[in-house]
């Protein structure tokens, strides 16, 4: 039996006025898996992931019957233990459009933050590791990048830095929240392939949030489809694409260009 890295059941999130944001969401992520969450914006994809990672804003109410991360019951852990578990065990690759990197701090002073905080080594070790990882994600001049402010990097570079930062703690899981939005197609492809490589070579499980069905079809083993705060469909990518059950999924799939090339790509994954 494979390890279950994420196990969420019956998640429900409502705002301060009691309005539901997520009605019903359950989700699993196994060892060495590449799983996608698709849905339109506002369907609750990001919110679900934030709930798993203990990142929901305080004013929201959240209930669930189970939230296990890396085999540990998050509901039973103290705040400090949760921080440690998630900070060291899970990497997060954010959307590119927003400033997840602090604009006024050089990359070298933020990339090793989790590594140092969770006692994996000192600043020197962190720097060595960062250089190694930056090279691995395809950055040719890692030292220059480390000495830069985020504004000095292009969108693609920043996303590589984000991925390297997520890898600093050798996490078991990487959660990627629409990591390729606002990147042009060539760079988008490079970033996706980089994530795939991390998955294939290091055996990191990936939870991949996207509204782009084409990407999900190409990369993910399994898919969760979210619609208006509910997980409406879940299953193997191939099955869902061939026999969608929910009307929303059917609609989504019907919008995909049905070129033979696409089909071919789906087969090969």
């Amino acid at each position: 039996m494979k390890n279950k890295w994420i196990h969420l059941e019956d998640l429900r999130v409502s705002d301060a006025y009691g309005r539901d944001i997520i009605r019903q969401a359950s989700m699993e992520l196994f060892e060495n898996e590449f799983v996608g969450i698709v849905g339109e914006s506002g369907s609750g994809k990001t919110m679900t992931v934030k709930a798993i990672l203990d990142l929901l804003p305080e004013e929201l109410n959240m209930t669930c019957s189970k939230n296990e991360v890396l085999g540990q019951n998050l509901l039973k852990l103290s705040g400090k233990e949760r921080k440690r578990l998630i900070g060291s065990g899970i990497g997060f690759v954010p959307q590119n459009t927003i400033a997840f990197l602090h604009p006024l701090i050089k990359i070298k002073h933020q990339i090793g933050e989790a590594f140092i905080t969770h006692g994996m080594g000192n600043k020197k070790l962190a720097k060595e590791k960062a250089i190694h990882l930056l090279e691995k994600v395809g950055i040719r001049e890692p030292k220059r990048v480390l000495n830069s402010y985020p504004i000095q990097l292009s969108g693609g570079m920043k996303q590589r830095v984000n991925i390297a930062m997520a890898l600093m703690t050798d996490p078991k899981v990487i959660v990627a929240d629409e990591p390729t939005t606002a990147l042009d197609t060539v760079i988008q492809k490079q970033v996706l392939e980089l994530l795939k490589e991390v998955h294939d070579k290091d055996g990191v499980s990936i939870l991949f949030i996207s509204h782009d069905l084409k990407i999900v079809k190409q990369f993910c083993h399994r898919v969760y489809v979210m619609y208006k705060g509910n997980v409406v469909e879940a299953g193997k990518t191939k099955e869902i694409f061939q026999h969608p059950k929910h009307t929303y999924t059917k609609e989504l799939i019907s919008l995909l260009p049905t070129l033979s090339k696409d089909k071919h790509m789906a087969e090969t994954v």
């Binding site: 990142l55 921080k83 578990l85 997060f92 954010p94 400033a99 997840f100 990197l101 989790a114 905080t117």
Partner: peptide, 17 residues
Amino acid sequence: EQDYMLMTRVNGLSRTR
């Protein structure tokens, strides 16, 4: 409210830091 503060939470930094 900036996203870099979210990132510090993902990375498990203490609130003080």
